[in-house]
Computed example of a mutant assay.
Amino acid sequence: MKVSIHVGVLLAVLPLSALAIQPGPAAQSQQETERWLQLQINGQAKSAVTQTATPAERERSLQRWLDSYTHPIPEYYKQSEGGKAKQE
């Protein structure tokens, strides 16, 4: 009985241990990447040149996307057709 109470208390307190983990990237490279992503999100690192697509470019892009649905999806991919994988 005493053991089950101890186990119950331990299981109840266990999720609280996750609160001690600091959020965010730990490595220096991860922190630098996070800073660049935040600059992009905030719009502070945006280009001065607005990039737009012409109506013809948008139409061709949409047509390529629609054409991609005309190709059948094979049930299985053959290794010889897709590339080489290292076999050990």
Rank of each mutant, 00 (worst) to 15 (best):
W36R: 14
A27F: 01
S4N: 11
K46P: 02
L39Q: 15
P23Y: 03
I21K: 09
Q44D: 15
R35A: 11
A85G: 05
P74K: 04
E32L: 09
G8M: 05
T50M: 02
L19R: 10
A85I: 08
V7Y: 01
T52D: 07
R60Q: 15
L39R: 15
E81H: 08
G83A: 04
R64L: 07
L37N: 15
E81L: 04
A53H: 12
A45D: 15
A20Y: 10
R35V: 14
L14C: 07
S29R: 13
Q40G: 14
L66C: 02
V49C: 00
Y69R: 06
Q38P: 00
L14N: 02
L16W: 13
S61H: 11
Q40A: 09
L66G: 03
S80L: 02
G43D: 03
V13H: 03
T54Y: 05
E34I: 00
W36T: 09
W65E: 12
P23W: 02
V49F: 02
K78S: 10
K46I: 03
G82E: 12
K84G: 01
G83I: 04
L11A: 09
E34F: 10
L10P: 01
H6L: 08
V9N: 08
A20G: 06
A20I: 11
E81T: 12
Q28S: 09
D67W: 01
K46D: 06
R60C: 02
W65S: 06
K46L: 01
V49S: 02
Y77M: 06
V7M: 05
S68Q: 11
Q51Y: 04
I21S: 04
Y69Q: 03
S47K: 05
S47Y: 02
S4I: 08
P23F: 00
L19H: 09
L10E: 07
A26D: 14
K78P: 01
E59C: 00
Q40C: 07
Y77P: 02
Q44M: 07
P72S: 12
Y69M: 04
A20N: 06
Y77L: 13
R35I: 11
P55G: 06
Q30S: 11
V3E: 11
S4D: 11
G83T: 04
K2S: 10
A45V: 08
N42C: 01
R64F: 03
T50E: 13
Q38S: 09
E59W: 02
E81A: 08
P72I: 04
A48E: 02
E57C: 00
G82W: 01
G24Q: 09
L19P: 02
D67C: 00
S61G: 08
Q31D: 03
R58L: 13
Q22W: 06
R64Q: 13
E34W: 13
K78N: 13
K84E: 05
P72Q: 14
I41Y: 14
V7T: 12
A85S: 08
H6M: 03
V49T: 15
A20S: 10
R60S: 07
A45S: 15
A45M: 10
S29Y: 06
L62N: 12
V9D: 05
L16T: 12
D67Y: 01
Q63I: 08
K86P: 00
L14D: 03
I5Y: 10
I73H: 06
L11D: 03
Q44P: 01
P15R: 08
R64N: 09
